[in-house]
Write a protein that binds this DNA or RNA. Structure first.
Lengths: 192, 192
DNA sequence: CGGGTTTGATTGACCCGTCAATCAAGTTTC
DNA sequence: GAAACTTGATTGACGGGTCAATCAAACCCG
């Protein structure tokens, strides 16, 4: 009993790791299963087919991310602090792992062929946007929606750029700082 | 005579188109060849292997883009105008085609496994960055490099976001406007 | 010019490895 | 002992890459 969720978790983690290592979705179920220490048949037993495995991995990453943002939001007070928390969470250590970034990038690709993947990604974007707008409103008023668009785009863009660089690690911080700088400048410009 | 370059061009275009249609690099050489109206063996004859076909497609896109930027730069005068030209070129009709965006996204994925693809992408990023810094310098002084990083990230991010949206077409213009707005706000903030 | 030869263009058929998915049988667990 | 769990073996399809062979145009030589 209760072995099932454990196996599922193992397989999901192995999937993310393997996608990170390969850098693409060209990952065989056997590779995933081997890394998880089980047979490929078991993966099919639990998930049905390969796409479900990928989707489960994607949900896992999104769930972790969402939890991180939620934590940062409740810990902060005032719109500015909340925005900062959001941004920092986006570039936090667990989201900025090499394999997580690679997986993330590949989920964008997956979204082009899988409706469900597209849906999941849309949920992420809508939530990010909604969070940003909510806390930008008191600071930027009517400019909030457009500004949120820019900040969201900047976050995604910096993320994407770090998906390449094989050298840079550890600078989720630098990226987060860039976003916050952009935010400050935008607000300052607005104030005059 | 001169039939070879024609075939190569056909195959390259077919590759981009096919990647755009599939939304991934899971494209068989046969599919590409069929769309180009030749046999798969011919594709291998000219390009050697599949990766070379992809790389040729990538170079093609980058070349078109570079030409467009160059054109915009010579037509503009003054740093501000040149920056605007650069941004507009990035979101111009030929770069913002559905299949070009999809191909672009997938080249990021390819770059994770192909050194040459990674190199090509780096060249693009360096050139963009260098262009931006060059024309930002007179406007932003020492803040130019960091600002260029943000603008470049924003461009990539907006590009990425439009790689998903199946609905949105035609708004290269809107995206370009967002980048220019960000630029204006940044400069205004800098002016204090 | 006109037959013969080289050279590039092009193909269909084929080989071989890989991989998703299945299945029947074995093992654990309660 | 049955239900859940797990596996190795197998299969059927598919795709990259090769090869031997055709085709056509250009080139050469008398």
């Amino acid at each position: 009993m209760a072995v099932e969720p454990k196996r599922r978790a193992q397989l999901v983690e192995a999937t993310i790791h393997e996608i990170g290592a390969t850098g693409s979705l060209n990952v065989t179920v056997s590779q995933i299963a081997k890394r998880a220490g089980v047979s490929s048949a078991l993966a099919f037993h639990y998930f049905g087919d390969k796409e479900q495995i990928f989707l489960a991995a994607m949900r896992s990453i999104l769930t972790v991310y969402a939890a991180e943002v939620r934590g940062a939001l409740t810990a902060a007070d005032g719109p500015r602090a909340r925005l900062e928390g959001m941004v920092r969470a986006s570039f936090s250590a667990s989201n900025f792992r090499r394999d997580a970034i690679a997986a993330w990038l590949n989920f964008y690709v997956l979204a082009r062929t899988s409706d469900e993947a597209c849906r999941l990604l849309s949920v992420y974007q809508r939530r990010l946007r909604s969070n940003l707008v909510h806390d930008l409103r008191p600071l930027a008023g009517d400019a909030a929606p457009a500004l949120a668009e820019r900040l969201g785009g900047l976050i995604d863009g910096l993320y994407l750029r770090h998906a390449l660089d094989p050298a840079t690690d550890a600078d989720g911080q630098a990226a987060a700082a860039q976003v916050l700088t952009a935010l400050d400048h935008e607000l300052k410009a607005l104030a005059r």
